[in-house]
């Protein structure tokens, strides 16, 4: 039995400790927004936050998350509880096509913006190159991140950093 917190809720998961966090989230906790893409940390579809930092859940043993805070796409925001600025920007820029990679893309983007509300193109490249999109939504992902960043800066009452 592994005890951890998922999206603020304490969960006791009856799962082998070596099981990747991805499968514990999807099959045992029943949260299917986090996706399986490659199983070897090459595509980013399985990205979740562990104590706020992005990790590839397909190669993270569930025991490594024991007693810690896991956040999945379901914990970022929803239409019922209110969308995160990144999710809203994804709709405004019409980012998703097939949509399968977008949970992971959004988790990476949220992590990026939580550390840096004025990311340059190079900052975006450095973080987002870990997330593959076979539909080629990259130009819209870039625009979405910039739009979300502006929204978050406005909400925080801060201006854009001078060097961007």
């Amino acid at each position: 039995m592994i005890t951890l917190t998922i999206n603020g809720e304490t969960r006791n998961l009856d799962v082998d400790p070596s099981t990747p966090l991805l499968w514990a989230i999807r099959e045992t906790a029943g949260l299917t927004g986090t996706k399986f893409g490659c199983g070897i940390a090459q595509c980013g579809a399985c990205t979740v936050h562990l104590n706020g930092a992005p990790v590839r859940s397909c190669v993270t043993p569930v025991q490594a998350a024991a007693g810690q805070d896991v956040t999945t796409i379901e914990g970022i925001g929803s239409r019922a509880t209110g969308l995160h600025p990144v999710q809203q920007a994804w709709i405004d820029e019409q980012v998703p096509q097939c949509g399968y990679c977008q949970s992971g893309q959004i988790m990476s983007a949220v992590a990026l913006l939580s550390n840096n509300t004025s990311p340059t193109d190079a900052d975006i490249d450095a973080v987002m190159r870990g997330n593959v999109c076979r539909c080629g939504a990259y130009p819209r992902i870039r625009r979405g991140i910039k739009r979300a960043a502006a929204t978050m800066r406005d909400a925080a009452g801060i201006g854009e950093v001078a060097d961007e």
Binding site: W90, V95, P96, Y100
Partner: peptide, 20 residues
């Protein structure tokens, strides 16, 4: 706006692999 966009940003869109 695409009708499928909202469900594809909050993890609620159901793909084949998500069937329960």
């Amino acid at each position: 706006g695409r009708l499928d966009a909202p469900a594809k940003v909050d993890g609620s869109a159901m793909f084949g692999i998500d069937a329960v």
